[in-house]
Design a protein around this nucleic acid. Sequence first.
DNA 1: AGCCAACGTAAAGGTTGTGTAAAGGACTGC
DNA 2: GCAGTCCTTTACACAACCTTTACGTTGGCT
Lengths: 246, 246
Amino acid sequence: MALSFTLAKKQPGAEMTSILMIDDDVALTQLVAEYLQLDGYQFTAVHQGPEGLELAKSNAFQLVLLDIMLPGMDGLTVLKQLRQHSYCPVLMLTARGDEIDRVVGLELGADDYLAKPFSPRELVARIKAILRRVELVQQQQQPQASSLQVNQLKLDSAKRQISVLDNPLVLTATEYQILELLMRHAGDVVSKEDLSQLALGKRLQLYDRSLDMHISNIRKKIAQYDEGEKIQTLRGLGYLLLQGEN
Amino acid sequence: MALSFTLAKKQPGAEMTSILMIDDDVALTQLVAEYLQLDGYQFTAVHQGPEGLELAKSNAFQLVLLDIMLPGMDGLTVLKQLRQHSYCPVLMLTARGDEIDRVVGLELGADDYLAKPFSPRELVARIKAILRRVELVQQQQQPQASSLQVNQLKLDSAKRQISVLDNPLVLTATEYQILELLMRHAGDVVSKEDLSQLALGKRLQLYDRSLDMHISNIRKKIAQYDEGEKIQTLRGLGYLLLQGEN
DNA sequence: AGCCAACGTAAAGGTTGTGTAAAGGACTGC
DNA sequence: GCAGTCCTTTACACAACCTTTACGTTGGCT
C-alpha cells in the first residue's frame, strides 16, 4: 500500500480546519456546531467514547473537543487511548471545579481544558490559541537556518551561541531558547503564552513572573554590549524583536 | 486521497536520509510518516517482522524504527537477526514501562528506545540525536590528523599521547579518549551523552557520575602543568574546550 | 486625575546539575 | 591471593539556574 496523505496546511481553497467534538450532550454539540461553523471550521460531533476514539485516531481532525463525563467510555480513557496513536491536540471539557480531572487530563497530554459551562467566545479563543501554537511547533520542527542575523544580533545555532556586535552572550539554556525564538520571529509579536510553552515547557500561570525575569535578564546581558538593541514589550500581547531599522 | 509527496530539502537530487519503520500499527506508521516526511526524511513502513528484517538487512536505510510487539516475529528477534548482518542504527519502540524489553534491546544493540506513546517531536529529536552520533562516529573512523594542537594542548595520536606545554600527560585510556574527543571538537560543545557513548561506550544514565569523575581527573592532570587551560562546563549541555585565545 | 492590571527587576528561595573525595568493584599480572 | 590500576558509585558541598516574592513603575482605562 502507498503511505499517503495530504498534509498541505495553508494552501488556499484546499483545507479547512476540522474539529471533532466528543460529548454526550446533544444540545451542547449543536450549539457549538453553530458557532464553530460560523467561524469557518469543519465540525463533527459524536456522542459516545468509542466512536469518538475511532474518529480521532484517524487523524482527520486538527483538534478534538473531549468531554470528561461520557457514558460508556470515560473521557480520560479516550484521551489515554488516543495518545497511544496520535498527538492530535485535545481540548478537554470538564465540569466546573473538577480539579483532579483537569490535572490528570493535562498529564495525559491534553493541550488545554475548559470548564463547563463556557461561553462560545471563550471556546473559540481557546481553540485558536491551541491551533496557533501547533502551527508554531510545526514550524519549529522544520529545518531552520542555522544562522541568522537580526540587527546587531547574530545567531549561530550550531554553536548554540548568540552574539551582539560580535560579543558572544553568556546565556543560560532557557535564555538562549527564548532569544532564539524571538529572533526567528523577528518583526512578529510572540505571546508570553507561546514563549512559556515553547521555551519553558509549561503553561503560563496567573502571577507567574518567571518569563518576565528571563526577559529582564536577557535584556541586561544584551545591554552590556549594545544599548540600542531592545526587546520590545507589547503590553498584554507579548514581546517583539524589531526587524530592520531601530 | 492524493498520493504521497516527496519533500526534498537538503541536497536536491543527492542523498536523503531513509528511515524504515517496522510496526504493525498502521495508523501509527502513517502518523510517523507524516512527521518524518515533513522533516525531509524518506520514509518506508512495513507491518511484519520478516518483511522488515529483509528490508533492513538490505542496508538501504540509515535508521530503523522497530516496534517490540510484532505479530509473527518478535521485535527483539528481528533486532538480533539484523545485528548478524548490519550495524544499521535501531530505535526501539516499546510499550510504556517495559523495562525488561528496554534492557534486553539495548543489550542486543539497539541505539535508543522510546516508550509508546511518544510525541512526534520527541521521536524526531531522538532520530536526530542518533543520526548525529552516527555521523560523529563515522567522522572518527575516517583518517584524522595524527597530531593537532589546541592552545597549550598537543595531541599525538600515533603515540596516543597528549601533552601540555610539552609535558606529556599520564592519562588512562578513557581519559585519553575523552580529551581527544574534546580536542577534535575544540570550539564546539560536546554533549555528555555523546561523550559517554563515544568514550565510555554506554548510554548516559540518570545519576551516572562516572563521566563527571573522568572530567574532574583530566582537569586535575592538566592543571599540574597549566592552570590556564580549562575544560569549560556548559550546564545541561556538555563540555567545551575553548579554541583560540583564552 | 485616579485606578488597576500588566510589567520591570532586585532579592530571596528552592531546585537541579556539577565538582570532587572517598569507598567500592572489576580486572590484571604476579 | 594480593597488590595495582582503573572505572564506577556514593555522598556531600556548592554553584548555577529557575522561580517566587515583593515592591516600584508604566500605561490604558474610565
